[in-house]
Amino acid sequence: MPERLHTPRRLPLGAVLPLAATGAWAAASMTGMLSGPMAVSPLEVLTTPFLDASGRELWLSLLATMLRVLVGGAIGGIVGLMLGYAAGMYRVASLGLAPTVHTIRQVALFAWIPLLTAWFGNGEGTKLVFIGLSTFFPLFLATEQGVRGTPEKLVDVARTLKLKRWTRVSKLYLPAALPSIYVGLQIAVLSAWIGTIGAEYAIGNGRGLGSYIASARDQFRMDIVLVGVFALAGGGVLLTTAVRSLTAQLSPWAQDQS
């Protein structure tokens, strides 16, 4: 790729489409093509989270949502990890658990909301359980698959060295399952993000990005709705990137030799 050398500081190709769209949007609202009570300009969307009283709610909402993702996601993820490990390790656990899990997984996540609100009420409990469910399945499946895929040859070594049970878990099965768990984690974090917003939006009360958007919609504040939508995209990208860089740091053996 020699032509790359001649273009040192060009705009990243990925930025062209969003910038062009924003430009068209700005032009449309300035020329009056975009008008009416629901029309907003890019500038309004940009200033709303800082200048508008209701718009400023964004930051606390974002924080509340992130916290919810972390807590609910961690609970579901840890349960998924442990049960997935058991299912990958022990035939009994696999035969006992897998059919149920694989069947329940077929139920669309949001179909749980009526049941969960009936069981746990309209509060934080339902949201956390819901988010937990959204991370449980990807991590259960990934861990089960990863642990089961542990090379038999390395298991032989553990047996000839008479490794203790916990050493086998921490130095053999979990590291062997890590690549698979990382893939599961990336799916889980996205699923938790979408699940959290969905739960907040559907249940409506309490602080959070989902309720932020829902109440803005009820007040016909399109600028705030758009701010919320952009925050959704940004938060999702942030979480995915964080997980990716974290997993890269946690497995130095997978890096190229330096």
Partner: peptide, 10 residues
Amino acid sequence: FQDHRLYPWL
């Protein structure tokens, strides 16, 4: 063993 079978993550 014939192959070293070292744990790649250690």
